[in-house]
Design a protein around this nucleic acid. Structure first.
Lengths: 352, 352
DNA sequence: CCGGTTACAGTAACCGGTTACATTATGACA
DNA sequence: TGTCATAATGTAACCGGTTACTGTAACCGG
């Protein structure tokens, strides 16, 4: 209110340095030669006046915001920490800003996305944070986008970066079958609209089929990538008369925790009676009482790659249509493999 | 480049709806009466044209960006996930945007802070992300700021929100002394410039003094709030001839992990020989092989409070000068208290 | 010495909104 | 009926930068 805020402008600098605003602008942006003498004068006045160019004015004139948006469904989840970290790093290195926003489904009717062409030069979109029609519209107007942990809808060639879900899921379920002789494997599904969940389930099915095991929909439990939900659903599963099972492939590490707890509740021992494996290799997975056998997803690298991509697109340089980062099965003990006697080395070595 | 981007402007809408730009503006901002008939027309044209006001133009005209900045030293740390989550929630609820930026010390010489008055209507500053002279300058120009996990320098009455460090540290060290009879307690210090670390050390000293135990600087180890650093420093500590000790108060949970690993390396048993306690109650702390006795810091609430504060300041409403959120000692097993037989309930119940 | 290039600098239009001020129509009230 | 408040709308200046266009002086090869 009444922020008269005699903010000092480029004209103040120009006047004080006895040059034109154009010259000051050129000096700031180094996009045209300025004599050493004048440069010196401008520079001095700028620090004297503590001048910082007004971003909005610059944006308006250049039609570039130098900021990129990140659209998430939620932040409240450890998973996003490395993603954000990787993204912010490359965005900052390239002198851009990062606008982080969530766009929950219930807001979609009433408001347009909080970040978009009006706001940013491009956006990174996680999973199903925005709907297809919005993607299509932005695509039509050539607005730079990179999808993360999802693929574009058909006929929209929007670059995306995600991780190898299916093959790794296949391998970790193979491990359960081949090494531990498990044949009745529960899958706790993630969020239904989530491609990660879909492909992890595909990998699961693949593994079953490859070993001549029939897919039994009764062995699939909903978990929503959530520890608590998975716990509840597993309890329900266990309290009804359920098919025999001897292993659980949880769609992520967090839900694996819910699974383990539910099993312990009813007195089933992990990993002796039931092997449990997860996905993601989150920060906590290696330091659990029963270190989790899981699939390592390079989430920080996903963030970096997405940042690199969106910056390329903004600069008009070519972007990869598809970046699929490799994942890796990490054998620990929750599947039944032998225990080490102390906390694993990686507790320490693991990059934060 | 050559993004001709015939972005549709308010004048396009005005022309098509056969009204003036002022009327359209008034309709959009609902800050002056517009006849129902005209409103209808404008509304229709707007959706037809898919018009979204250009943020920069609006910012320039109103001198308000409707976005608030968050300045961190680093993101790569699970600790920030709940902070961000809480902050983003209230910022979004109040129709503002969140600009997340890191400002590492090595950038400070060369660049001004990536977020500031040129960019945002106010900033939330974590710990020592910006230096005192910068704080002073912003304060002088009345730029809204809220400090988080730090207090303002003397004579700058900048509102801050942080957690109760000293009293809780005192209590958890009391616990070590009174319940477990420990009297030779190592403290692994956090980052030296970090107030949290400072006050946690003060609480530690208080507890010692209250029990007539002399403070021994040889029992203080540097840890920098970092698992790996703490591990290394503890190893160094243990390999030189060190004073006898029977407990460790780590300045945060992450470093407690490093401590435990270092102790296990040299064959000391936790908690039998040495009690270990931490601070923060991070997401993983309750699911460790040895669940950590620690102090719960309400980090998500800190984020929410900071958001509320900065929004108040921006709206010119009064802000609390100081918000000190309570912390709570959480007794688990790493101090030597009795174990429960399965994973603690809170693994499930804990809010994500 | 001349035409042409280049280095350097200034003027002013423009980016797309907001809003102070002006204008007209309308209804209320004395 | 004249006065006044109010509703509804328009005109144009302004926010603080960038940049197209223009101009001058210095420099260069012939």
């Amino acid at each position: 209110m009444t922020r008269k805020s005699h903010s000092i402008t480029i004209r103040d600098v120009a006047r004080q340095a006895d040059v034109s605003v154009a010259t000051v602008s050129r000096f700031i942006n180094r996009n045209a030669p300025v004599s050493a003498e004048v440069a010196e004068r401008i520079s001095k006045v700028m620090t004297e006046l503590n001048y910082v160019p007004h971003a909005a004015a610059r944006h308006l004139a250049t039609r570039r915001t130098r900021s990129i948006g990140l659209l998430l469904t939620t932040i409240n989840y450890d998973f996003f920490s490395p993603l954000l970290s990787g993204l912010e790093k490359v965005v900052a290195e390239n002198h851009h800003n990062l606008l982080v926003a969530t766009y929950r489904a219930d807001l979609r009717k009433e408001y347009p996305p909080p970040v978009g062409p009006h706001n940013t030069d491009g956006v990174v979109i996680f999973a199903d944070a925005v709907k297809e029609d919005q993607l299509a519209q932005w695509h039509r107007m050539n607005f730079p986008m990179v999808l993360v942990h999802r693929t574009p809808p058909p006929h929209l060639n929007i670059p995306y970066v995600t991780v190898e879900n299916k093959a790794a899921s296949r391998r970790i379920v193979d491990h359960l079958i081949e090494v531990h002789g498990r044949r009745h494997i529960v899958f706790t599904r993630g969020l239904v609209d989530h491609e990660d969940s879909h492909w992890r389930e595909m990998g699961y099915k693949d593994a079953l089929e490859a070993h001549g095991i029939a897919y039994d929909p009764k062995l699939v439990v909903n978990g929503e990538f959530d520890r608590e939900v998975t716990y509840r659903e597993m309890k329900t599963f266990l309290s009804n008369n359920h098919p025999v099972f001897d292993a659980v492939f949880a769609s992520d590490d967090d839900s694996a925790l819910g699974v383990i707890r539910a099993l312990q509740d009813v007195g089933m021992s992990v990993p002796d009676q039931v092997s449990v494996v997860g996905f993601d290799d989150q920060h906590f997975s290696c330091i659990l009482p029963l270190p989790l056998t899981t699939v390592r997803a390079p989430t920080e690298a996903v963030g970096r790659a997405a940042g690199q991509q969106i910056l390329n697109m903004i600069l008009g340089e070519p972007a990869e249509q598809k970046i699929l980062l490799p994942t890796e099965v990490v054998i620990r003990q929750s599947c039944g493999c032998s225990a080490r006697k102390s906390m694993p080395k990686e507790v320490i070595a693991q990059k934060r």
